[in-house]
């Protein structure tokens, strides 16, 4: 193929430039000595200093929001890992009317726009007189995380060799032993991958949190939003850069680990 068109390559390069340019500009702006995004006023580290010195009002709010975000993500991840794995196992193991209904229920939150989930959960909490706070955010996040965990684990289960379970049973293992010694070690990577996805989705979520958060339970995205609306947009730049560094290193690290595992166990 000599005269293959160069057009798709140019489009790809264009798309990559389009994807990265705003992030690059954001990083440059974070060192800009100007209160508002705009002309270059000189190099400064003061935004990072404000964030890290933790005695300013903004810094205190941000760190509290960070703590809330991590707490919510942690709880939602743990609950959805348990429920999502059970759901995946049920859908993998049984083929029945009940399971097709179950499957529909698990997939539905994946296609419903965030704002619909946000408003419907808000209506539920309002109707049962539950005060909005961290608990309502955790419940909401768990609701969409279950589906993602179930999806990832179910994907891994497709390559699962069920004869291993039969073999263990023939050798006298009871249900509990099969779970702990066969299922969990084999499904571990899948469950972990689902949990990682749930964690990042929870940390990233803005719309559903915005609808179900109460006063004092601000998470980081909601905090960024209110800073954008009224306050110090330039501080967001520095915060974003810290955020980007953390997420990029986590993603690249987990990618490395997953790739290595895939290479050591080639699929046949």
């Amino acid at each position: 193929m000599k005269n293959r068109s160069k057009f798709p390559m140019f489009v790809t390069i264009g798309v990559l430039v389009f994807l990265y340019a705003p992030i690059l500009v954001l990083i440059i702006y974070s060192f800009n000595d100007s209160r508002y995004p705009g002309a270059w006023q000189g190099f400064t580290l003061k935004w990072y200093r404000t964030l890290l010195e933790a005695n300013s009002v903004e810094a205190r709010d941000i760190w509290r929001a960070t703590r809330n975000t991590l707490l919510v993500a942690f709880c939602a991840t743990i609950i959805s890992m348990v429920f999502g794995t059970l759901a995946a196992w049920a859908m993998y193991r049984f083929r029945s009317r009940l399971q097709s209904l179950h499957q529909m229920l698990v997939y539905a939150p994946l296609v419903v726009p965030d704002i619909l989930m946000g408003i419907s959960l808000l209506m539920l909490f309002v109707n049962v007189n539950m005060s909005l706070g961290l608990t309502t955010i955790i419940i909401s996040h768990t609701t969409f995380c279950i589906s993602y965990v179930a999806l990832v684990v179910l994907g891994r289960l497709q390559d699962f060799d069920h004869t291993l379970v039969d073999a263990a049973r023939d050798l006298g293992a009871n249900g509990f032993a099969v779970c702990v010694r066969i299922l969990l070690p084999l499904l571990g990577p899948g469950i972990a991958a689902g949990g990682l996805l749930a964690f990042t989705l929870s940390v990233d979520d803005f719309v559903i949190t915005f609808f179900t958060a109460g006063p004092g339970s601000t998470t980081l995205p909601v905090q960024v939003y209110s800073m954008m609306r009224h306050g110090t947009p330039t501080l967001i730049n520095a915060l974003s850069v810290i955020f980007i560094i953390v997420t990029f290193s986590v993603v690249i690290f987990s990618q490395r680990v997953l790739q290595k595992r895939d290479n050591s166990h080639p699929h046949i």
Binding site: P22, I23, L26, S240, F243
Partner: peptide, 11 residues
Amino acid sequence: WTNFLIRVFAW
């Protein structure tokens, strides 16, 4: 993987 709001803010 970077926060959605941060990307909107960048624009």
